Amino acid sequence: MNNHYFQTAKPLNQQLQQLMHRMHAHAPKIARVSYAKYNRDRDTLVTYADSEFQLWSELHHEKRLSKLDQLKRSAAMGVPRIIDDLAYLTHCDRLAFLRHKGYRSSAAIPCFQNHRFSGFVFLNAYEPNVFDSKSLLSLAPYIEMLQFAVESHSQVVKTIVEFADRLRTGSTVYCRDSYYHGRRMRAYTKVIAEYVAEHRNLDDEQVEAIAAFAQIHDIGKTQLPESLMYDTKPFGSQELMSARSHIDNGIKIMDEIVSSVGNPSHPSITLLNQIMRFQYEYLDGSGYPYGFRQEEVPLAARIVTVANIFDSMTTHKTYKQACSVTEALLELEKMVQQGKLDALCVDALRYKQEYLKQVIHKYPEPEHWGYEE
């Protein structure tokens, strides 16, 4: 198998910072390097990595490319967009952010993967008139290295998720809800991770990885018998013990998948391990399998735990009706008061109730659990 990515890598923000220092040999006035990925499905540019990664609150940003005329033209023509002096531009909130941070000039270099636009590398300097076509041409090798670093990380996460999805769809217990549950989990987890990012120092790279891995968090259930998956009654003690075995199953499956893609030493693998091992732990120690408490439970697992409980509450089961979004949030609040869940993670959902309803409507569970008409 040809693994087209770095087998060992530092976090992307650190890689960008190091590349910026190397760029100084050709362009010593560069003060910031960042990368925004293009999401083709939503036609949005999404911040992804930044050499100034201490600025947690300013990292997370998303905008439709169709609303950004100059960048849209740059992407279509494949030529950089250069701004000599940001002081004269007031039409964009992102430019206002850059001016507030003291930056005066900017260059946006469009990137392409397999001849398709994939995002922008942004360069900023504190002085005006820093960038021109000649200076950007001298930086081309570094831009290529930066793009490969970004694509490398994305490919690691994408490959693991694709392998897991392929395995899951081949399972006898796979049904439409397995797919829809994964999509809902990704959406809920993204909401929570973006909200807590500023407070808990999560960067865009980590937010994206946590959301991607959340959709395959329950892959261990593919090893459970159909009779257990489609049981119409709440579990007794023996059934509960059997059901909980899916944690060990999931860890084993993911270890095998990671091994099959070359055991890359990437920060995202740490997040994956945290989710798979600790997603059923509660902060008061009443969870399983380890009974961890408080800071022993990693943030990635806390996020997925809240998302999963919310999804369970707001979908129908054969033995219970779905709660409304409001009712589910009230129940989650009770669990916060009991010391079980991270309050910040629950707060994140409260502020996005209309969006949560849209996700539930877009990805509904089947009318009959486990069966397709």
Rank of each mutant, 00 (worst) to 15 (best):
E162K: 10
F117W: 14
I30N: 06
L341Q: 03
H100T: 07
Q238M: 08
L65K: 04
S268V: 08
S118Y: 13
L344A: 08
Q155L: 09
A108Y: 11
D84F: 14
L89Y: 13
L95I: 12
I275F: 09
I83Y: 10
R73P: 03
Y103F: 15
K158S: 07
E296L: 07
M335C: 03
S34C: 11
L137D: 10
E373P: 09
I269W: 04
V156G: 00
F117C: 09
H361N: 03
L12H: 11
D347L: 06
A328V: 01
S245D: 08
E144Q: 15
V79A: 05
E198H: 09
L240T: 10
K233I: 06
A322Y: 12
H368A: 01
L12E: 05
T326R: 03
R200M: 10
V46L: 09
Q279E: 02
E151N: 13
S260P: 04
A197D: 01
A301W: 07
S227I: 07
T8R: 12
L65I: 01
D342E: 13
Y288H: 10
P267K: 10
L45Q: 10
E205C: 12
L271C: 00
A9D: 00
G285S: 09
K29L: 14
E256V: 07
M20N: 05
H153C: 06
G250K: 13
F310Y: 03
Y195E: 00
M145G: 00
Y35Q: 03
L271V: 04
V79E: 09
S105T: 01
D311H: 02
P28T: 12
N129T: 05
L202M: 11
Q17E: 11
S154H: 12
L146C: 15
P11W: 15
D255L: 05
D203E: 14
I269E: 00
Y174A: 05
G78A: 09
Y5M: 03
A164S: 14
S34E: 12
N201F: 15
G250C: 11
T172M: 12
S268Y: 10
N308H: 12
Y188T: 02
A300V: 04
A301Q: 01
K29Y: 14
L68S: 01
L146P: 05
E208Y: 14
K37D: 01
I269Q: 01
E198S: 09
S133C: 11
I247Q: 02
K221S: 00
E296M: 07
I309R: 10
L349M: 04
I216V: 12
E295T: 00
I109D: 00
G119P: 04
K158F: 09
T314S: 02
E205I: 10
A107P: 06
V191L: 15
V359H: 06
D93T: 13
S312F: 08
K29D: 10
E198D: 11
L329Q: 02
A164C: 13
G182N: 03
N114T: 06
I83E: 13
C323S: 06
I251Y: 11
L341M: 07
Q70S: 13
A301P: 04
R40W: 12
P289H: 14
L98C: 12
E372F: 13
G182Q: 04
T169I: 10
M254S: 04
H21A: 08
M23V: 06
D203Q: 12
M335F: 10
E208W: 14
E373C: 05
D231I: 04
D248G: 15
E198L: 05
C175M: 07
M23C: 14
D218P: 02
T222C: 13
K67S: 08
R22C: 09
K334M: 02
